[in-house]
Amino acid sequence: MTSLKSKMRKKLMLSHGARKNTKNTLWITYSHKLNRDIALASNNECIYWVACLEANPQIRSFEFGFIVDVKIDREECFQTKELIKVDLKTGGLELHGLSSGNGGKISFEGTAIINGVERPMTCTSVFGDYLAEKSKSAARWLKLIAFTAQVKNEVCEIEYEALNLVVRSLSSGTVGQLLMMTDRHDPMIILGMISRMALSGDISVDLTDLPFGRNTIWRLA
């Protein structure tokens, strides 16, 4: 018999666009790219989302739990799989899949049936060892995303214009400098605007060694 906890978990996941119930760790988080809260069904999905999808300025949008018929070139027939659909800013479309074990990140050519039409498709398999390497980076980006989430329903036009003027005039610097030069405004809103700019690809931030903070170095993209 399904427990009340399992029913509530399934309802929560479905309400945020999740595909299926799972016993793995459940993440409910905000995506600036999609402009909504999303559900991620495991730690691996969370790591890949934040480090490789949300933080990648070359990606326009993505969809977890995308059910598609796909055939790798060396295979003879199509197989129905649950993958991640990735839309690139260049207009291209890719399919990504998370796998256990070692193997890094491998891309290969395949064919997918989308809206009833067969089309060539780049498919990428992402293995556990690759995700392990990205885990620290993901933790650092999660802190930045938290500042975006706190202003997710706000336009903040005045604060954005003030920040954008400073960013254009400096071209590079630290987050602390941006806060100092916009000190007439709420610093938490300014941090939210900075994180929006970083996720949108307007500026690049260096999170190689340290999480997002006053000492974070940024550059105009």
Rank of each mutant, 00 (worst) to 15 (best):
C77N: 14
K105C: 11
A162V: 03
C46P: 03
K81D: 10
L179S: 00
G213N: 06
L163Y: 00
I190A: 00
G97V: 12
M197V: 03
V70L: 05
R219W: 09
S195M: 03
D183Y: 09
H96I: 04
T80P: 09
L191A: 02
C52G: 05
D209P: 06
Q79K: 14
N43M: 10
R60L: 12
Y30L: 01
V166C: 14
E118W: 06
F147H: 12
A221M: 07
L178I: 02
K20L: 12
C46F: 13
S31M: 06
E154R: 10
L14M: 14
M193R: 11
N21M: 12
M188R: 11
L95G: 07
C46L: 12
G213K: 00
A198R: 03
V166E: 13
K134L: 07
T80K: 14
E94F: 07
S125L: 15
S6G: 07
D206M: 02
K5C: 08
T208D: 11
E118F: 06
I217V: 15
L131K: 07
N56A: 06
W141V: 05
E45Q: 10
F64V: 02
K33Y: 02
L142K: 07
L88Y: 13
L83E: 09
L40Q: 02
K11D: 13
I194G: 04
K20I: 12
N43D: 15
Q58W: 10
G213M: 00
R9W: 05
